[in-house]
Amino acid sequence: MFQYEKKLQYPVNIKNPNPKYAQIIISQYGGPDGELGASLRYLSQRFSMPYPELKGLLTDIGTEELGHLEMIGAIVYQLTRNLSIEQIKKSGFDTYFVDHTTGVYPLAASGTPFTATYLQSKGDVITDLHENLAAEQKARTTYDNILRLVDDPDVREPIKFLREREIVHYQRFGEGLRLATDRMNEKNFYAFNPSFDTHCNKKGNMNRNQNK
């Protein structure tokens, strides 16, 4: 289960609203490499993870991503407060405003709404961990691009924190992949998929010892 803690993982206190920045940064809320996709990816994949370290890792990183989703929501919310209609028209935020006013809605900077096609849960430990390594790097690149587009230090500080987390998660997933392959057939990692080929209480299990 999940329990809420009434605080952000890292503080967000933005003094100057900026709807243009909001429209860019919302991509990390509901865009192709955003925090919603990240949390759903890990929290879904974990059910078919074969080893305790990986169940723990996916649960913990998936949970942290929910905290990041909340931080991005707070950034977007604070960047879009007290806007005048003039500011909205001039910044290009009008195309978002017409559908959502200043409500926070999961979509990409381009306007494409969030879709589950941004993530995969393949039920194969090697495939899923590689998906996650790639996802962390894609998110890191997106944060790098946001830092190229945004000058305000109030916005940059929490974005820099989130960028750094992508790198740490990438490191942990790499270690997780190594822990997994250490337990698999070193002559052919693809001989068995320990997420599928190990059946509990099933006769004729060729892979019975793989899970130990």
Binding site: K7, P11, E53, L57, V168, R172
Partner: peptide, 21 residues
């Protein structure tokens, strides 16, 4: 709140590290 976040972060980072160590 900032002090608390810093302490929680240190603890969390070690918790994640312990998943693979």
């Amino acid at each position: 709140l900032k002090q608390l976040s810093a302490l929680q972060f240190a603890s969390w980072e070690l918790h994640l590290y312990m998943d693979t160590h």
